[in-house]
């Protein structure tokens, strides 16, 4: 790790007694029943669990895509769960990058346009968008594909484009939801290498949601979720 957390610095993500309840009355469903968790800067954390265990809900709460029913989510010590929507949108836009199992690339647009989407949302000027987009594509060896349509790429290339899109806004945390779930094992491994390389070289915090034990094993730490509770946390 090139950047270890400064002593005494607040964790980049902190969750305290998170609960999330969907519906009420008969159809009430407690997805999370009180989860506390700290993620330190520069580390990689795997959230594992069976489907329906609440691991995705936990990631959504940590990534500020959803608000907890009770409990606190802090970003660098700042309470984010109760912040106004506009602030939360900015936090997500500036601090987080997302890699999903599916690529979610817009087929008709060029690779460059897909990669610069976070910058478009942020309101960066077109010229600056292109410059930063090309730089990040270059670093991932995709510079020659910048003007291609996203549809014309192979699966592995697409996932690299998705990672480029997650990186373009220079985030502190990348959330990866089953990042290799859609890839064959060889390309899956290449994508894993890429993600962990970024974590090591750039000090980016990595939060990976997966049910793949091999992937979880490569992370610094893993927490296992079952029935909305952390049942096991182990430092490697």
């Amino acid at each position: 790790m090139t950047s270890s957390p400064a002593p005494g610095a607040p964790p980049v993500l902190r969750a305290q007694a998170l609960t999330k309840t969907y519906g009420d009355g008969q159809s009430r469903f407690d997805a999370l029943k009180g989860v506390s968790l700290e993620v330190h800067r520069g580390e990689s954390l795997a959230i594992v669990g069976k489907s329906g265990s609440g691991k995705s809900t936990l990631m959504h709460l940590l990534a500020l895509l959803d608000r907890p029913s009770t409990g606190v989510v802090e970003i660098d010590g700042e309470d984010a769960a109760s912040a106004p929507t506009r602030r939360i949108n900015r936090l997500r836009n500036e601090r987080f990058g997302f890699v999903f199992q599916q690529f979610f690339l817009t087929a008709q647009q060029t690779v460059l346009e897909n990669v610069t989407l976070p910058l478009l949302v942020a309101g960066v000027a077109p010229r600056e968008r292109a410059r930063r987009g090309l730089a990040v594509l270059e670093s991932l060896g995709l510079a020659d594909k910048a003007r291609n349509r996203a549809n014309d790429l192979s699966g592995g290339q697409k996932q690299r484009v998705v990672i480029a899109r997650a990186l373009v806004n220079e985030p502190d945390v990348i959330f990866a939801d089953e990042p290799t779930g859609n890839l064959d094992s060889t390309t899956g491994e290449q994508v894993e290498d890429l993600l962990f390389g970024l974590q090591r070289e750039r000090g980016i915090t990595l939060v990976v949601v997966t049910h793949d034990d091999d992937l979880a094993a490569r992370c610094d730490r893993r927490v296992t979720i079952a029935d909305g509770l952390i049942v096991g946390g182990a430092d490697r």
């Binding site: 990534a63 895509l65 929507t85 506009r86 949108n89 900015r90 936090l91 997500r92 836009n93 500036e94 997302f98 599916q102 979610f104 817009t106 989407l117 976070p118 949302v121 942020a122």
Partner: peptide, 16 residues
Amino acid sequence: TREIGLMKAMGMSNGR
């Protein structure tokens, strides 16, 4: 749908 979801995940406001 997916594209809208993605843009919103990336912090695009409802108004936009």
